[in-house]
Design a protein around this nucleic acid. Sequence first.
DNA 1: TCATCACTTGGCAATATAGCCAAATCATAA
DNA 2: TTATGATTTGGCTATATTGCCAAGTGATGA
Lengths: 112, 112
Amino acid sequence: MKVIRRLTGQTKAQMEARATVMKALAHPSRLFIVDELSRGERCVFELTEMIGADVSTVSKHLAVLKAAGILIDDKRGAQVFYRLRVPCILNFFGCVEAVLEEVGRHNVSEAS
Amino acid sequence: MKVIRRLTGQTKAQMEARATVMKALAHPSRLFIVDELSRGERCVFELTEMIGADVSTVSKHLAVLKAAGILIDDKRGAQVFYRLRVPCILNFFGCVEAVLEEVGRHNVSEAS
DNA sequence: TCATCACTTGGCAATATAGCCAAATCATAA
DNA sequence: TTATGATTTGGCTATATTGCCAAGTGATGA
């Protein structure tokens, strides 16, 4: 029998779960946070300074990443330090850069 | 001197470029498409059947993936076949699944 | 206890995304 | 040329996301 893959049931649930993680990573500030945390933990204030947005905005970005399972928070006194929960997240960017290089190559050669 | 990373200039542009790629992947149907195309090229109609949405909706998802540099389209007669431009996209999912497993483990053990 | 620092949460307006239908293209067959 | 099948595009509404300000919470120090 021929098996036809469909976006239903288990497949659908799996793709929705993956999309949650991808969505959490689909924002410049959040990508910056992940990149920065690859160098070690940082508190909210440090990240806020670097990003240059309101601290409430940064706090919400961190909450999104945490909800997706990408970050862990560690409250120490009045400060909250965040770090990567799953460091392999960084492997993403090698491929993302490869895509971007392809795009660049294409745009140059076609002068679109 | 101490170098402080900031989300400005080149860094900002880089993160925005990455976010474009991640955003393109941040949707269940588009993730399904990428997964399906890892098995070989497919035309719009085939994908539409599998996804079960309007063909115009699927066409727009494909346009998003193409614009991000993830897919290539190949017009043959009246049909358009899509395939992955950068197969390493698939490496993503190993890590995404690792995140999801962590999340699962956490939720079970904490019974949140 | 009160003030302050570090952060989170609520609320809101601006913007972006998703999905459907209808209409437009474009290739091919009659 | 006309009809048909495959796909894209325009337009519109519903929904989601973003980012700021203001207010709330919690720890620490005076």
